[in-house]
Amino acid sequence: MRYGMAVDTNKCVGCSDCVVACQTENNVPLGYARDWIVETVDGTYPNLFLELRSERCNHCDNTPCVRVCPTGASFIGDGGIIKVKPNKCIGCAACIESCPYDARYMHPNGYVDKCTFCDHRLAEGLDTACVSVCPTKCLYFGDVDDPNSEISILLANNKHKTLIPEAGTKPQLFYIV
């Protein structure tokens, strides 16, 4: 069992619904976010290419954030979900520094916070908040270890990439291009 997420950039319109749905679902204070939208534009008018994508923690297999954590607050949970135990976090921010994706932020309450793949919802058999709200259905979540899962089939049949693969973190967030 290994959770992963795929984002179909051919469908994403960059509306930020995933961002606001995560904020309300998870009580993320305004001004902070666990997921966000990136827009890249290549080319010169009128020969252009635009990519819009929803980004968040990559829930990497090789996790600098967990390795640098001095207290064990950052840990690898079930299904490879990278989590933070707020009560063990001393707010040293070493994990924030180590993350190539800038996916962690310092919660105003003094601990580091990040995407949890909405594991509280997964436990109820629900999709993550971002997946369940996305109007374009460009977000896919599932078990990448299971070759018959929707996400595995999707990745097997579509050209995809990961972000900053050269960091060697083995990210589990895939972008269909």
Binding site: D17, V19, V20, A21, T24, V133, C134, P135
Partner: peptide, 11 residues
């Protein structure tokens, strides 16, 4: 069953 960002942010 899927609200847009404005509907989600309607709170």
């Amino acid at each position: 069953g899927r609200f847009c960002p404005r509907g989600t942010g309607g709170v």
